[in-house]
Amino acid sequence: NQASVVANQLIPINTALTLVMMRSEVVTPVGIPADDIPRLVSMQVNRAVPLGTTLMPDMVKGYP
């Protein structure tokens, strides 16, 4: 099973992602692959992302 990117904390709308905000976890449904975490750094979320939420491609501005 492939690990996905999961919010490690509440991420407010328009926040630029940092490594501490994300963790990898095997979840269903599958979200953004954990391998993409380095690419996500400094990209902004377009909505508030609660703790434990799987990051989906449509939540991150400019992804992929």
Score class of each variant (00 low, 15 high):
Thr18Phe: 03
Gly31Trp: 02
Ser24Phe: 04
Met22Phe: 15
Lys61His: 15
Leu17Thr: 00
Val30Asp: 15
Leu19Ile: 11
Pro50Ser: 12
Leu17Gly: 02
Val41Pro: 02
Gly52Asp: 12
Val27Trp: 02
Val27Asn: 03
Leu40Arg: 00
Leu40Asn: 00
Asp36His: 15
Met21Gly: 03
Gly62Ala: 13
Thr28Arg: 03
Gly31Arg: 02
Pro33Trp: 06
Arg47Leu: 10
Leu40Lys: 00
Tyr63Val: 06
Ala16Asp: 06
Gln44Arg: 08
Pro29Phe: 04
Ala16Trp: 12
Met56Ala: 08
Thr28Tyr: 08
Lys61Thr: 12
Asn46Gln: 14
Ala3Ser: 08
Asn1Trp: 08
Met22Gly: 02
Thr28Asp: 15
Leu40Gln: 00
Thr53Met: 14
Ala7Thr: 13
Thr15Ser: 10
Met21Ile: 03
Val6Pro: 01
Arg47Ile: 12
Thr15Ala: 07
Met59Leu: 05
Pro50His: 12
Pro38Thr: 12
Gly62Tyr: 07
Tyr63Thr: 04
Val27Asp: 02
Gln44Phe: 12
Val60Arg: 00
Val26Ile: 15
Ala7Arg: 01
Leu10Met: 09
Leu55Ile: 10
Ala34Glu: 09
Pro38Phe: 09
Pro33Val: 12
Val49Pro: 01
Ser42Phe: 07
Leu10Gly: 09
Gly62Asp: 09
Asn14Ile: 03
Met43Glu: 04
Ala34Asn: 05
Gln9Leu: 11
Pro29Ala: 04
Pro38Tyr: 10
Ile37Gln: 04
Gln44Asp: 04
Leu40Trp: 02
Gly31Ile: 01
Leu55His: 01
Val41Gly: 01
Val45Thr: 11
Val49Gly: 02
Pro50Glu: 15
Pro33Ser: 14
Thr54Val: 11
Ala48Gln: 14
Pro12Ser: 05
Asn1Phe: 14
Asp35Asn: 06
Leu17Lys: 00
Leu19Pro: 08
Asp36Lys: 10
Ile32Ala: 02
Asp58Thr: 15
Thr53Trp: 08
Gly62Asn: 14
Val30Cys: 15
Arg23Met: 05
Met21Ala: 04
Leu51Thr: 14
Val26Asp: 15
Gly31Cys: 03
Pro33Thr: 13
Ser4Arg: 02
Asn8Ala: 14
Asn8Arg: 13
Val45Trp: 00
Arg47Gln: 14
Val41Tyr: 04
Ile11Trp: 01
Val20Cys: 09
Thr15Tyr: 06
Pro50Tyr: 10
